[in-house]
Amino acid sequence: MIALPIFYSFRRCPYAMRARMALAASAVQVELREVVLRDKPSEMLEASPKGTVPVLLLPDGRVLDESLDIMRWALAQSDSMGWLAHDDQNLVSATDGPFKIALDHYKYPHRYGLTDGTAHRDAALAHLGDLNDLLSAARYLGGAQPAFTDIAIFPFVRQFAATDTIWFAALPLPALQSWLSGLVGSDLFASIMSRYKQWKVGDAPVHFP
């Protein structure tokens, strides 16, 4: 039997979400190991001491512990939907950098000694406005269909929107809201949000997708 890549994931982590979506889109099968973040397995920490998910252990011994690298690796194996044709690294970097920093301060203000995260919420709106402008010209950032850029960015916009759903729904960002709703309601997203029990040594392998 050919050994499968081992994939450490956490269901609600946005970084793991985008990696799972790329794995599902590529149909590259892995052995999924669901992690509980307060009880990380030593096997994962040995492979990737930084202790964050996702982590992909390849049969040749390589370790990929950055979600974008996992996405690109999966799609390099099979990219039937042409996701890699739209990989806007500047837009993804802006989301992973300044937007994500603002999102964390908005969602978890007390972690940063803040009374509330309103100022950071408002700072993040500039990026959302830019996305809305782009999506006003096409249904997806990748054009008529979702592509790499959409999937790389989507989980973080979803996290932002979920922080205050009523406030977000009232924003004058109709193209962005429609884009988000379409991705949240997609079969692809539903397929990667199944619940799995915490992986323990000796458990029967769980194959994904």
Rank of each mutant, 00 (worst) to 15 (best):
A3T: 07
A19W: 04
L134Q: 10
G202F: 10
L56Y: 07
R158C: 13
A147Q: 10
L4D: 10
S78W: 07
D96L: 06
A204S: 12
D69V: 08
F156Q: 07
F168H: 07
S80R: 14
Q159A: 06
P14R: 11
M81K: 10
P109L: 05
L103N: 14
S42T: 13
I153L: 05
D39K: 08
S191V: 11
Y106M: 09
H207C: 14
V157M: 02
A162V: 00
G185A: 01
I6R: 01
V92K: 01
L176F: 05
L37G: 06
D130I: 06
Y112E: 11
F168C: 13
S78E: 15
V63W: 10
T115I: 15
T95E: 11
F168M: 09
A3H: 04
S181T: 14
A162K: 05
Y106D: 09
Y15T: 01
Q198P: 09
Y140Q: 13
C13F: 05
L58M: 02
S186T: 10
R121A: 08
Q159F: 04
R33T: 11
M21K: 12
N90D: 15
A152P: 04
S93R: 12
P49L: 05
G82D: 02
P155H: 05
V53L: 00
L103K: 08
Y15K: 00
L134K: 15
P146K: 02
F208Q: 09
A85F: 02
Q159L: 08
Y15S: 03
F148S: 14
L57H: 02
R195H: 15
L57Q: 12
L58D: 08
W199Q: 00
V36I: 12
A119C: 11
D130V: 07
H86N: 14
S178P: 08
T115R: 04
N132M: 06
A74L: 05
G51V: 08
L103Y: 12
L23A: 02
D122N: 15
R62G: 00
D79W: 06
R158T: 14
Q89S: 06
L125C: 11
G61P: 03
L68R: 06
Q145H: 15
F189T: 12
F208G: 12
P146Q: 03
D133K: 15
P146N: 04
V206L: 08
D65R: 03
W199K: 02
H86M: 08
A85Q: 04
S178G: 13
Q145P: 07
L125F: 12
F189P: 01
